[in-house]
Design a protein around this nucleic acid. Structure first.
Lengths: 240, 240
DNA sequence: CGGGTCGTTGACTCGAATCAATATAGGTGG
DNA sequence: CCACCTATATTGATTCGAGTCAACGACCCG
């Protein structure tokens, strides 16, 4: 099976960077890709990872983490299917990328991709656009970290995940039950690490949302959002 | 006086994007620039600002702010001389840019710059590199907002500002007194808005640092860092 | 079925927010 | 140029939200 074939049946083709570049760039990119399965917990880049890796997430979730020597941990980004993974033009970033769930990654190895970037202005433009969007996202997240209450933080993250999980490209959904049920890609501890909170606080806020009927959880990672609109309200209102 | 002349004597030429592009791009860019003085408090883009503006800061400081309807405010970025100001490829960003001090800006108006970006791959590449650095910076800041104590937050911000203020391109320094004295580009309230704190908390932490002899302040905005190394320690240690 | 990790809940503490009262710089107008 | 006036900064007293410590419960794996 040729690479072209693989790209043609790629589930994220229409939403990834591949959809925004010219045929020539797409062809050159298609030549150097290979699919890869990565188990939960594996570090993709950063830290002691020597080789640069770039890729597009086909399925699964990647977390971007900052860990300080004293153990304090902050998750500074989440990436979902169709997102671009990698940090071009630098190999010294305090951030590292780790598989939050098992992943399917369409990846191209370091040097090759950077050469491609240099040679294909359209590819570089689309990476720039993605990066600018990531920056907007990071800034919205800064507002959350600096100004929102625990209640709002938890509601915001659930809302964000629920929206991404609902996208067709994402296989997080378990079964199209009534509103939206999906498997949470993060543990309680990881949720806390996203939000600048402690696990216990996250649990208490989840309990609150449950008692109000806005969400439901049975098995640990199985989530149902009953009232998406309510959830959004909670994500932006100081309290009730 | 020609534009070329103006560029030749530009104080931030060697550190801005202009230093990283080819002669042809530099020439084309030089054709469309004009200097502008902008008073403290003026909004440069975002909010109700219709016209897109791009530019390079020659002197002064720009703050990037998110304000929510209920009045909660978070500063999500600071930009110093030689930094690039503007948000290409989008006009709907919740962030807006405001002059934190009086500014001197070398600016190019919207459409023209975006066309230039498209036509000059080297210019686009250097904007991409800057954006990636901004993203790294935003993520470091997320760690600060999510995980640092008030003490560390204040020390971190002062350290960051002191480093940028010390750069030759920056005219913040007042007089080369013993260690480093400079004019703070932010009010106490703005410092609080950077850090996800309240004014009162910022004051108390400043008082702490003063009583330890690490910094000194006489007139409100005049700051001296006595012990840069100590300040850095405080920026990263849970407490003392 | 048993062990261990992860999640949940409760009691208490602590750091930063809030509320309130001055103090001081710096600008303004007389 | 000086005295006043206002916005900004500072300090104190108290409250409150989230952190910490501790125990228990439940899901998941072998």
């Amino acid at each position: 099976m040729s690479v072209r074939m693989k790209c043609n049946q790629c589930p994220v083709r229409s939403t990834s960077i591949c959809s925004s570049i010219g045929v020539e760039s797409a062809r050159d990119l298609g030549r150097v890709v290979h699919r890869m399965r990565i188990p939960e917990g594996r570090v993709i880049y950063g830290g002691n990872q020597r080789a640069k890796t770039f890729g597009i997430i086909i399925s699964g979730v990647v977390k971007l983490v900052i860990v300080k020597p004293d153990g304090r941990t902050q998750i500074v980004g989440l990436q979902f299917p169709s997102d671009f993974v990698g940090r071009p033009y630098s190999d010294t970033s305090g951030v590292f990328a780790e598989a939050a769930t098992d992943l399917e990654l369409c990846c191209f190895s370091g040097r090759v991709f950077e050469d491609l970037l240099r040679d294909h202005a359209d590819l570089e433009r689309v990476v720039l656009k993605r990066t600018l969007n990531d920056l907007d996202g990071a800034r919205d997240w800064m507002f959350l970290l600096g100004r929102k209450s625990a209640q709002e933080k938890v509601a915001s993250l659930l809302h964000l995940i629920a929206e991404r999980a609902a996208e067709p490209a994402c296989d997080c959904s378990e079964m199209p039950v009534s509103p939206s049920t999906f498997r949470l890609p993060l543990s309680r501890t990881e949720i806390a690490e996203c939000l600048g909170l402690r696990v216990e606080t996250v649990c208490r806020q989840l309990a609150q949302l449950k008692s109000r009927g806005i969400i439901a959880t049975n098995r640990r990672r199985t989530f149902t959002v009953n009232e998406m609109a309510e959830l959004k309200r909670f994500a932006e209102m100081p309290v009730e």
